[in-house]
């Protein structure tokens, strides 16, 4: 039987192959459209469009990469950064699976469970979107109805209510300070809203790590 290290090395090797290949594959779409329709990009639009969009999203992407990798594990990271929806789907699904099976995220079982959960979630998401695209005509009036709009607008509070109560109650000692900080910041700073919550995740993570380290080293509160 392979050792844990051999398995992880194999995941990383395949992760690199898939990751670099997917970078190229995703760029195929715009270039193929150019070739098929004989179109040339609007260079001014491309330049200014990239200038207005890329710097912020590349900066956020770099910070998110370093923040989420330790939470997602190896297989989970290689999958999640391709399929997206990390904080609102892939990470919650992995956390829920770890919690239900009572396995630690940094164990080999944790690596396997989170990879399985994220892979299944990615497959199901892709299939549901395909179904939605095929059935767009009958589904559109239902899913975009005014009656259902409030439910879809509140998906994040509904998701983190359930997830939060489990993780905060289990780790209340390390959760007090970051939850208070985030409540104060989000209530008092008008610029913090649904569009900026992603940027606040690394802030919350770094603050929690700092407070936990302080409590661990300087007090007996976490014993």
């Amino acid at each position: 039987m392979r050792t844990r290290e051999e398995y992880l090395n194999s995941v990383h090797r395949w992760g690199k192959i898939w990751g670099f290949s997917m970078t190229a594959v995703l760029l195929v779409f715009p270039f193929a459209v150019c070739l098929i329709f004989g179109a040339v990009p609007n260079w001014r639009g491309l330049g200014f469009g990239l200038l207005a969009t890329a710097p912020m999203y590349w900066a956020v992407g770099i910070i998110e990469t370093f923040t989420y990798i330790p939470m997602l594990g190896a297989g989970g990271s290689y999958l999640s950064f391709v399929t997206g929806n990390i904080s609102n789907l892939k990470l919650p699904v992995a956390l829920n699976a770890l919690e239900q099976n009572n396995v630690k995220a940094n164990s080999e079982e944790g690596e396997i469970i989170s990879t399985i959960a994220i892979a299944v979630s990615s497959i199901v998401t892709t299939l549901i979107i395909i179904l939605g695209v095929i059935l767009i005509v009958p589904l559109m009036p239902v899913l975009q109805s005014e009656a259902l709009a409030p439910a879809f607008a509140q998906i994040l509070p509904a998701l983190f209510g359930g997830l939060g109560v489990v993780f905060i109650s289990r780790n209340w000692k390390i959760a007090i300070a970051p939850v208070i900080l985030m409540l104060v910041l989000f209530i008092l700073v008008p610029a913090l809203n649904s569009g900026t919550v992603g940027i606040m995740v690394p802030v919350g993570v770094l603050f929690t790590l700092g407070v936990t380290r302080l409590l661990y080293k300087k007090t007996s509160f976490l014993d």
Binding site: L91, M182, L183, L209
Partner: peptide, 14 residues
């Protein structure tokens, strides 16, 4: 701490 840090940001957002 990583998980709590992420969850606390979303609790604040709510």
């Amino acid at each position: 701490s990583l998980f709590i840090g992420m969850i606390s940001a979303f609790v604040g957002y709510v």
